[in-house]
């Protein structure tokens, strides 16, 4: 068929179309689709690469005999105390941060004056914008100094608990301080996520509760919190994932060692995997490097599992709603 123009005044249509037959448009589509698919596949490859290189570089350490490795220990024995420190610090952070974050989330979503809420939320988000190195130095210099009198008090009055066995470190740069710095760092992410779930509570549920004569707290207790519970749990899990992998804050606050102790305020503090890598990697070589990479692999697997669990909780509750 020819150019579909029968009107003498407006010839060949805008831009002069040709026939209906396949032309250049399909080529453009194929190229663009191919490029964007390629970008997606690249991500698959990168992640496969992360796993492959970490495993590949771990193998020399995993197969070497213990005498050749740092500290003359097997990789498992080397990583085990670090793993303990990692989990301990992250759990302290989680226990401190979650209740406060939920409180702030509720404050911003339901208690603060409407007009101020967005600005207040932005202030909390600013906490996430502070680089980790800054938190590290702040924790080592400012927070630890603040906490010294509290640690001394804890040692005197709660010393019967294994956590506060002491003697309290005069510098205050202890496991508990590191955990608190981590708590500050994961606070914004847990707050932001739980605030979002609280805000998503169906208006109908809230109004139903209020119409029954509930006070604001009762409305939250019976409408908002049940609705947001799984969201808060997964937010906490994502925060836990962050805390597990956080490096600099711990590396700067603690002068730790690879030990296992529950004393949170004493002089000997367990180091975390990430902090240990940051401290040891720049000067490492040979099998030490391989051992550190193996510990990184362990960290990768743990954070992967935690994050996976968090997503799973989200998707499960999402299907229910």
């Amino acid at each position: 068929m020819s150019t579909p123009t029968q009107q003498p005044t407006r010839d060949p249509g805008p831009g002069g179309r040709g026939t209906l037959a396949t032309g250049t448009t399909r080529k453009g589509d194929a190229v663009f689709k191919g490029t964007s698919t390629g970008a997606g596949v690249l991500i698959l490859l990168v992640l496969a690469g992360v796993a492959a290189f970490l495993i590949g570089q771990s193998i020399p350490a995993l197969t070497a005999s213990p005498e050749d490795l740092p500290e003359g220990q097997t990789v498992t024995a080397y990583v085990w105390p670090l793993l303990f420190g990692t989990v301990l610090a992250a759990i302290i952070a989680l226990l401190v941060a979650t209740p406060i974050a939920v409180g702030i989330g509720l404050f911003i979503s339901h208690f603060a004056p409407r007009r101020a809420a967005q600005t207040l939320g932005y202030l909390v988000d600013l906490l996430a914008a502070v680089p980790s190195i800054v938190y590290g130095i702040w924790g080592a210099v400012v927070l630890s100094a603040w906490l010294v009198p509290i640690y001394q008090w804890l040692e005197r009055n709660a010393g019967f608990l294994p956590f506060f066995d002491g003697p309290a470190l005069p510098s205050g740069r202890t496991m508990l301080t590191a955990g608190l710095v981590l708590a500050v760092m994961i606070l914004p992410i847990i707050t932001a996520l739980s605030r979002d779930v609280f805000l998503q509570t169906p208006r109908l549920h809230e109004e139903a509760a209020l119409a029954l004569g509930a006070t604001r707290w009762e409305m939250i207790r019976y409408a908002v919190i049940p609705y947001g519970r799984s969201g808060v749990v997964s937010a906490a899990m994502l925060g836990l994932g962050r805390a597990l992998g956080e490096t600099m804050a711990v590396a700067l606050v603690l002068s730790g060692a690879r030990i296992i102790t529950f004393d949170l305020i004493g002089a000997a503090n367990p180091l975390t995997i990430a902090a240990n890598i940051a401290l040891a990697f720049p000067e490492s070589s040979g099998l030490t490097t391989n051992t550190l990479i193996a510990s990184g692999l362990a960290l990768f697997i743990i954070t992967f599992l935690v994050n996976f669990a968090a997503r799973w909780i989200v998707s499960r509750s999402g299907a229910k709603a």
Binding site: M1, P4, R17, T19, L20, A21, T22, G23, T25, R26
Partner: peptide
């Protein structure tokens, strides 16, 4: 349309929409 089947395999759907 015009003796041309719009669902013929040679036909570009994008061109159809221009007509």
């Amino acid at each position: 349309m015009d003796g041309q089947d719009l669902y013929d395999k040679d036909v570009d759907p994008v061109a159809v929409r221009q007509h």
